[in-house]
Design a protein around this nucleic acid. Sequence first.
DNA 1: CTATACAACGCAACCGGTTGCGTAAACCGG
DNA 2: CCGGTTTACGCAACCGGTTGCGTTGTATAG
Lengths: 344, 344
Amino acid sequence: MINVKKEGKLTIRDIAALAGVSAGTVSRTMNGQAGVGQETRLRIQQIIEEHRFQVDPTARMLSTGRSQTLAVVFPLHASEVVMHPIYPALLGALGDAAERAGYDILLLTQSAEKAAHVVDTVVRRRVDGVVLPAAGPRDPLIKELTGIGAPTVLIGHRTNREGVGWVDSDHDSAAHDLTRLMLDTGRRELVLLNGPAHVSACKLRSAGFWKCVKAAGDAVTSAREVRVPFDTDAATAEALKILSGPSRPTGVVCGSDTIAAGVMDAAHSLGLRVPDDVAVTGFDDRSFAARTTPTLTTVRMPLDEIGRTAAQMLFAMISGGPAPRKVILSTEIILRGSTPAREL
Amino acid sequence: MINVKKEGKLTIRDIAALAGVSAGTVSRTMNGQAGVGQETRLRIQQIIEEHRFQVDPTARMLSTGRSQTLAVVFPLHASEVVMHPIYPALLGALGDAAERAGYDILLLTQSAEKAAHVVDTVVRRRVDGVVLPAAGPRDPLIKELTGIGAPTVLIGHRTNREGVGWVDSDHDSAAHDLTRLMLDTGRRELVLLNGPAHVSACKLRSAGFWKCVKAAGDAVTSAREVRVPFDTDAATAEALKILSGPSRPTGVVCGSDTIAAGVMDAAHSLGLRVPDDVAVTGFDDRSFAARTTPTLTTVRMPLDEIGRTAAQMLFAMISGGPAPRKVILSTEIILRGSTPAREL
DNA sequence: CTATACAACGCAACCGGTTGCGTAAACCGG
DNA sequence: CCGGTTTACGCAACCGGTTGCGTTGTATAG
């Protein structure tokens, strides 16, 4: 289909002919292998440069089995998940890092827990490494990928499985700091309205919350944790109960911005003022967080850094070099109107 | 790197041996070409099925020059653009359609107007077709891609250039309908606070707005159009002038949700009630549109359908068949609180 | 001064499909 | 029953790199 302009169709043998050597020598030169004289090497490099020769990745792929390709796997149809705006940012950073390293990115979709198609594509396309930005820690795909020896990196989940790398945000500290913020602004009755227990990020946030509460001792009057889905309406319903019940909290730390939005809705409909009567925080810094009333204090993930780190981790794994296989990156608290200005 | 399990490593020659024919015959069978006897064909298909043989796309790629790959090109670093949440949805639909057709998707990033790298990758990777979801109509990349004969589909921009397909939302009608909505709810003093003039979608929205205004005749008391960047703060500044000036509009149709958010901010700070004093509409149905105060009436693009259509268009172009090369898909108005409930 | 070790390359066989061409067998009408 | 087509298939040369092995020439050691 694609018409390659004739004169651009240089092959390695053409270069070899121009340099008066064999194709093998050109190949060795390009790959920096030994067995080529200094003088010959320079001459070949000169000619390559001059003619802007580029190796055909397909041919190389066929003979080496490597492809200079990274795959990123997304769940299909899981719209609630894929739509999460962290992905564009992640993809951008990944793509950037990949391009810089001469890799291309293949976008795979995983239909309904069926690992087969993804594994298949990885093998047949000779994908060098795989990023799983949305796989649960128990996803069978992980085992299958490591089974075939594919370097794999998880994003947003932690695992102890051998041969799998991961990079995650420091949910623990972030939740701790938010809780700390509540206490520092005089909130002593706290609720953590967390996301589902099966989401590992939520477990970590829970840990951070409780660690801060424990450490605060008498500074906190009451503290409890409630789980809801990542859903504004469900959060509203739950928050209505919490905010109208006995021992009304003065600070609600939420497991996501969507949940926080629900809490603020509930507060408004009960006539409570945010943050005066009840302070609220979210997680993720979704675009609407800057547009709620009041604007939402939340946590921003270092998406750029996560993407870059995942790519670099994969490169290290591909080349077999030593590298950190587990990375936790710190987050940033975005202070807005749903928490009181720090007092004193 | 990837260890293929040995027994899975069937080649076309293995199949040929099993069927007692030559590799060429197997190849012809798989590609449905003539020159194979009915009986032989069935036997070969049987064996292929039985051993779950799959062709090696890399090898095929090398010899045919086709790759069963579609590329999607995103601008790099243009964060404001890439972050736009339409992309995840688009990618999802594209990936879905591609997978169904046995294609994979390559994600390319276009660094700063440099078409070279993208074109290079398209040629070297034998990409069969390219989707440009974020290229301006004058992007040099378009010419370069058609120059090498690569089937190309634009999303969100229309062009008359030969050999380029496009699919876009019906911005014209959407703007028309929003304007109509204003009139139907008794708003006679209108402003279109549109996005930058160089964005083709904005031109179309402008056309739709004016068409409705013209058709309405005396039903509209005043109407004008102002351009601002897609930026909430800039929109707020402009809206402050518009709303506090003489002949205050009672309806503001905005070129994007971000602009609409700015207008609502301005209205609030002037003590104007939305929608009672001034009705506001947006465009895009960004996630925050459901969370502003009041919630924002806006337009939802048929992202799924756009993605699907783009993929199908590419397939048609690849196979050289006839197909619509220009598709306009209709949008959906999401009625929320920033416009009055339809009266009467 | 000869035997041995390297370094620098060429050769050719891969990698796993595709395809033009040649040939033998089956088929056709007369 | 024969010459001429058609059909079914094998052969081998691609596609464009990579790589193990063999050969040559030169430096080093003995």
